[in-house]
Structure formats: C-alpha cells, structure tokens
Simulated assay, not measured.
Amino acid sequence: MLRDVYLRAGVLDTGSYLTTVNELCDQLPALRPELLWYVTSHLRTRVDLTGVDKVLVEEEKGAPIGTAFSLMTGLPLAMARHYPYDFPSPRIGFSSEYDRSTLNVNGIEQGDRVCVIDDTLSTGGTVAALIGAVRELGAEVTQVAVVVEKADNGGRELLERELGVPVHSLLSIKVAPDTVHVVEGIA
C-alpha cells in the first residue's frame, strides 16, 4: 500500500531538491484512514519503545502520523509548532529540503526519553534541529522513526553518525524528475 502511494506520487522540483507530493504527506488525494493505520502499525513494529516517555513530531507533515502513533502506543504526544506562544518553549531554527523556518518545541521536559516520528527523512535538517532542542531541554532522543527515507540525501548519516541516534524507516526511495523509485522497504 505504501509503495503504491509513492509510485503514484507527483514530483516537484524545489530548486534544490526533488520532492514528492502524495496522499500520506500532503493529503493529495485525501489521506485514507487505512493508509494511516497501515503506516502507523508498521512503524510501531520497527521501534523499541522500552523506556520511551513521549513521541515528538513536527506539526506540518508529521502530525497525522504522530497522532495515530500516540493513540496506538498510549505515549503522550509532544509537538513542534511553527507559531510561537507567550510562555517559555524552545524556539529552534531548521533547514530542510523545502523550508527554512523556526519551530517551538512543546511538551518535552527534562529527563524525558523521546522517540521522534516524521513522515520523510531527506537531509535530516528538521529532525536534527528537533534532537538539538530535546537535548537542550535536558531530555534524550532514543530513536527516530520515519515512514520514508530519501536515499542519498544524507539524512540517515547525519542522525546516526553525527548525532548518534538510530533511525528506523519503512521505505527508501530515490526521486527522479518524473518518477519515484522504491529502493527497499515494505510492500
């Protein structure tokens, strides 16, 4: 099911990277509940949540997946949001393949053990910024779980080798100007 979503995905040239437009990440077409359940249940089998206190997602594309994951696992959901609040919460800058912005990391406290969930791992910029914010708060990211990893964009290397956080993904893809190639992963 997930493979089919990416094989049917549209491809957009951002000027720096080729990115996909699809049902899971962009709700084009609308996200089917069975796809969300499929993705979430498979992500759950990939991660060891022993000792994990919270799930952290970025609100734009990770929110549907993180919400379903929180409901499935019973773990509290923390969210990194684009708009600021009038109370203290770390504001982090990040750069990804399609955005340069800031996020407020809400719901993480000192001593928490966190699993970061995201839709796509490409350059690793967004997730690396989240890991930095979690560490700044005196908490720990134990692992990262992503639905799709763009092979050859350096995200896994950044997170695992440079930041020491293991990454779990369901599907690895390569994006060409007119198509998406599935490299490996679930059916």
Rank of each mutant, 00 (worst) to 15 (best):
E109H: 15
T142N: 06
D112N: 14
V167C: 13
R113P: 13
V134W: 12
R161T: 04
D118T: 03
A151G: 07
R156N: 01
I117L: 09
V127D: 04
E140W: 12
N106M: 10
Q110C: 11
G154Q: 07
C115A: 14
V167W: 12
N153K: 09
L163D: 13
G138F: 05
R113K: 15
S101K: 12
V167P: 01
L159S: 03
H168S: 03
T120E: 12
I131S: 05
V147H: 07
G107W: 10
C115R: 05
A129G: 12
G107L: 12
V105Y: 02
L103Q: 08
I131V: 11
L137D: 10
V116R: 01
V144W: 04
E162Q: 14
E136G: 10
S101Q: 12
S122E: 04
E162H: 13
N104I: 10
L158W: 10
T120I: 15
A128Y: 07
R113Q: 14
L103V: 09
K150V: 14
C115K: 07
E162V: 07
R156A: 01
E109T: 15
D99A: 15
A129R: 02
V134N: 07
G111C: 03
V147Y: 06
G132S: 09
L163C: 14
E109G: 15
A133V: 00
S101Y: 07
G111E: 04
I117W: 11
P166H: 05
A133D: 03
G164Y: 10
Q143L: 05
V114F: 02
L103K: 08
D112E: 14
I117K: 03
T102E: 06
E109Y: 15
G155H: 01
D99W: 13
A133E: 06
G111Q: 05
G138A: 09
R135K: 08
V134T: 09
V167E: 04
A145F: 06
I108D: 00
R135S: 05
N106V: 09
G132L: 00
D119S: 09
V116W: 00
Q143C: 04
E140V: 13
